[in-house]
Simulated scan of single mutants.
Amino acid sequence: MTFKMAVPNKGRLHDRTIELLLKSGLDLGEDWGRRLYVTAKNQDIEILFVRAQDIPRFIAIGSVDLGITGQDQIADSGFVLKEVLELEFGHCRLSVAVPEQSNIRTVDDIKDGCRVATSFPNVTKRFFDSKGKNVEIVNVSGAAEIMPYIGVSDIIVDLVSSGATLKTNRLMEIETLVTSQAVMVTSEKAMEANSARIMDIVNSVKSVIDAENKKYLMADVPVSQLPEIDKLFPGLAGPTVMNISGRTDMVAIHVVVDSNTIFDSVNKLQKLGAKGILTLPIERLVP
């Protein structure tokens, strides 16, 4: 039976999702951007391009085995799903925001009957119910920030990243309902039936994410400095040391280092007498 995976067809999560899939080795073909679903070349994996907010439901009812969506969408869906990998992008938070000129500074200040505009009606209702607040949910499809200005709502619940959009629209954030990022998600039933296939995809994508924060470093170093090299680069399992043909005083080392340490690493190697230092990007990193 064909394995089905759902990914966002557009929006803030789309581009990075496709990038991760392609880098992980899933070949979507040349015309994937014009189709609603494709079968990955040489793999019995069907990729469906759907709305991010629909993906939790599709997984919950068993229409797809694995999906990529935001934790905000999962929270609003109300379905109990299994997150198998945090993807480290799409970071945001779902927050209550109020007009700056209002007298509201905490959720306790919100009066019963307050109108709340949001694209996340379910999680918003659950939140205010838990606070004992009887509010009116105004379901909007986007641009919630303008709703208080035009009189559609009194306050909003919306996604916030930097907060710049709120500030531009003279709104202020008073409480966070959900912190969110993109995740790979499945169901317990799908995991029981397809755990090997799911983990193959998860591990492939994870290897791409891990590799993006690393560099492959090569250098020729004096044999006498190997003890210092070991201290400098513990790496995944210490540096790989190889003999250089015709040389007894120098050896070649290969090591994986964090990208944010590459500047210091190269300088320290030079001070230890290293030559021919070379750094390379890594496409995938499988420990």
Rank of each mutant, 00 (worst) to 15 (best):
S180K: 04
N203P: 02
E173V: 00
E88K: 14
A60H: 11
G29P: 04
V185H: 03
I229S: 10
G29N: 04
K214G: 00
L13F: 15
R126F: 00
P148N: 09
M1P: 11
G67V: 01
A182G: 07
G163D: 08
F49T: 04
D108W: 07
P239M: 07
Y37H: 07
R115G: 03
L28R: 10
L236S: 12
P239G: 02
Q73T: 10
V116P: 07
P227F: 04
G33S: 14
T248D: 12
Q181W: 01
G78H: 07
Q101Y: 09
A196G: 05
T261S: 12
L232G: 10
D264W: 06
K214N: 04
A97F: 05
V205P: 06
F49A: 04
I61S: 05
L159G: 05
A97S: 15
D54E: 15
F127M: 12
C114Y: 08
L81N: 01
R34W: 10
C92D: 13
A237E: 09
V178G: 05
K82T: 13
A193P: 00
M1N: 10
H254I: 06
G62F: 12
A274I: 04
D158H: 12
F79Y: 15
S161N: 14
F49L: 05
L21K: 08
L87T: 06
S24G: 04
G70L: 05
V185N: 04
D44N: 15
R170I: 01
N169H: 08
F127W: 14
L285I: 03
I18M: 10
P227Y: 06
S63T: 11
G70W: 05
I174A: 00
A182E: 02
V266S: 04
V185D: 02
P222G: 02
K10D: 10
G163V: 06
E46D: 03
I253P: 14
N243A: 13
S207V: 09
N260G: 02
M242F: 08
V96H: 09
Y216S: 06
P8N: 09
Q43E: 15
T248N: 14
V178M: 07
A40F: 09
G151P: 06
T124W: 05
A52Q: 14
L217R: 06
T248E: 13
V185Y: 03
M250G: 02
I55A: 08
T165M: 14
R93V: 00
Q53C: 07
D230L: 13
L217P: 06
V64M: 12
N203L: 12
V205D: 03
E88T: 01
K275M: 12
V38K: 11
V221M: 02
F3M: 11
R247T: 02
T2N: 10
P99C: 13
P148Y: 09
A211G: 15
V157P: 11
G29A: 03
A193Q: 14
K231C: 00
T279N: 14
G246A: 13
W32F: 15
K271A: 12
S153F: 02
E188P: 00
P227C: 05
P99R: 14
V286W: 10
G276Y: 05
D158L: 10
D158G: 11
V202C: 04
F127S: 11
